[in-house]
Design a protein around this nucleic acid. Structure first.
Lengths: 107, 107
DNA sequence: ACGATCAATAACCGTTCGGTTATTGATCGT
DNA sequence: ACGATCAATAACCGAACGGTTATTGATCGT
């Protein structure tokens, strides 16, 4: 779980990359060029970021014809929630609520 | 809040740095040399990491004589919790929508 | 007063990172 | 069949990162 937390933290530590993930969370499935449109970086940069997010399990790519549809894999945030829950007893109640929700989505 | 989240994510994305923060969370106030002892890096490296954690507000340093006592500032995790909370709310919406749909299909 | 200790800073080094442009490979529309 | 489009890869670049050793500054014990 340590390693997973590492990857997730690192993946989300870059603003551009996190913005991509956030957009996928909010808007659902999006193609690379749709994502590139809003991101203020080039298409290859977007593709690289998506690749990293995919490695972290935060994103899934579905190839359809010549376009690839990406979507957020919210379950992959679990290591982060676990980490927070463990190290910040201060926020215990909120974390429990979060974890509860995640477990329900895990099914 | 975006910027805060940036800094917090980035600060915690390095394993060595996160280990320092975790130890401070678990064991309370510790001096630099106590932290250096367990970390597998040099004292200057530890000092630099503590400096970054301090910039992020994740850590507080209390100078006492020639030694500095550091402690975790769990409140600084709030941006991270908020970020997760925001997307958790989004998940809940989706989840509720799905539940709703399933219920309607049942009839 | 002086040597030892603690922590921060300086100076440096190799690697990784985030970005670019150019190119390739695949698929679509006509 | 062919030009256009979409996405991934390649090759490269400067900046930032994480680490080191050496040094400095301050404080403690004797």
């Amino acid at each position: 779980m340590q390693v997973r937390a590492d990857i997730v933290f690192k993946s989300l530590s870059d603003p551009t990359r996190r913005a991509l993930f956030e957009r996928l969370c909010r808007e659902g499935e999006l193609t690379v060029w749709e994502l590139t449109d809003a991101a203020r970086v080039s298409q290859p940069a977007v593709s690289k970021h998506l690749g990293q997010l995919k490695s972290a399990g935060l994103v899934r790519g579905r190839r359809q014809g010549r376009e690839t549809h990406y979507s957020a894999e919210t379950k992959a945030l679990k290591p982060l929630v676990d980490w927070l829950g463990f190290y910040a007893a201060f926020w215990r109640e909120k974390f429990d609520a979060l974890e509860n929700l995640l477990n329900r989505m895990d099914q």
